[in-house]
């Protein structure tokens, strides 16, 4: 259908957009894909299934899952408190949620390491009770939890704000207790946002680098995350291996993106019905 556009600038702005997206986003990712594909299946598989790589997936994925689980609970509580209650300092708490977004990851990394090092403010009391955080997977988890916190809060917050009080009231009139209303009326409404926020937080945790490498200790097979392994292969001038591992991370990111997209599509269809 050839409808004339009313507003000017279609060709110019779309042209700029496509050129920029092509040059800045598509070209590098395509170059990475081509490089990884040029390895051939056998070599590619040998690199991405090596014991050290698999150990890195293990620690990365498990830490990311733990950090996401923590943030589902803490992030949900935080969003709930910010939306439902008025208390002195609420706006400061609201602003502090953005600290992990705004604070550069390397700065967060050295700060968390200093806090949790055996001599640090948190590390010293923790090591007295036998808990070591710095240079263990627990430290990786804490760094991931820090950087991915805003994703869950900021995804759930607007949905909680838009909740209709009438549904809650109806539940109460029908004699439901608070716990039942929370479980059967409120939770289903915010579940899609919670899952979306959780997948964003999980994706961010999988790819996080700066905040982690200081606190992780980076021992191969134990506390070495996948992003760091790609970086190390690069420093060893093993470019094919770096390409293979980076492309595995890229595929994981795309898989999560597709999962979130499909989930949103289902949720939208559900709401429209």
């Amino acid at each position: 259908m050839a409808r004339r556009h009313v507003l000017p600038g279609f060709g110019l702005t779309l042209g700029i957009t496509l050129f920029y997206v092509g040059l800045i986003i598509v070209l590098p990712l395509a170059a990475l894909a081509v490089k990884a594909a040029s390895l051939g299946f056998e070599d590619y598989w040998r690199v991405v299934s090596s014991a050290r790589a698999v150990a890195s997936y293990r620690v990365t994925v498990l830490s990311a899952l733990a950090a996401t689980a923590f943030n589902v609970v803490f992030g949900l509580a935080l969003a709930w408190v910010l939306v439902r209650y008025r208390f002195p300092g609420r706006q400061i708490v609201d602003a502090l949620v953005d600290v992990p977004f705004a604070l550069p990851t390397a700065v967060a990394g050295i700060a968390l390491t200093t806090l949790f090092a055996p001599s640090g403010w948190f590390g010293a009391p923790l090591s007295a009770i036998g808990v070591t955080v710095a240079y263990t997977p627990l430290g990786i988890m804490i760094a991931m939890a820090f950087t991915s916190l805003p994703f869950i809060v900021r995804t759930v917050q607007p949905v909680l704000e838009d909740l209709d009080p009438a549904a809650e009231e109806a539940g109460r009139v029908l004699g439901a207790r608070d716990g039942t209303i929370a479980r059967k009326i409120i939770f289903p409404e915010i579940a899609p946002a919670l899952i979306t926020g959780a997948s964003l937080a999980f994706a961010r945790s999988l790819g996080e680098f700066g905040a982690i490498i200081f606190i992780a200790g980076n021992q191969p097979n134990r506390t070495e995350i996948t992003a760091l392994l790609a970086f190390i292969r690069l420093e060893e001038f093993d470019y094919p291996a770096a390409a293979a591992i980076a492309s595995a991370l890229l595929l994981a990111a795309f898989a999560i993106l597709a999962f979130t997209g499909a989930l949103n599509a289902v949720a939208t269809r559900h709401l429209e019905r």
């Binding site: 590098p28 170059a31 990475l32 700066g210 390409a243 991370l249 993106l257």
Partner: peptide
């Protein structure tokens, strides 16, 4: 699809982005 493409950098690890640029402008690259 264009919107999805534009938002890709949010999901991609910064290290992956750096490695990808190496394969465009680096000696090993395009």
């Amino acid at each position: 699809a264009l919107l999805v493409l534009i938002e890709i950098p949010f999901s991609v690890s910064p290290v992956v982005a750096g490695v990808a640029y190496l394969f465009v402008y680096g000696l090993q690259g395009l």
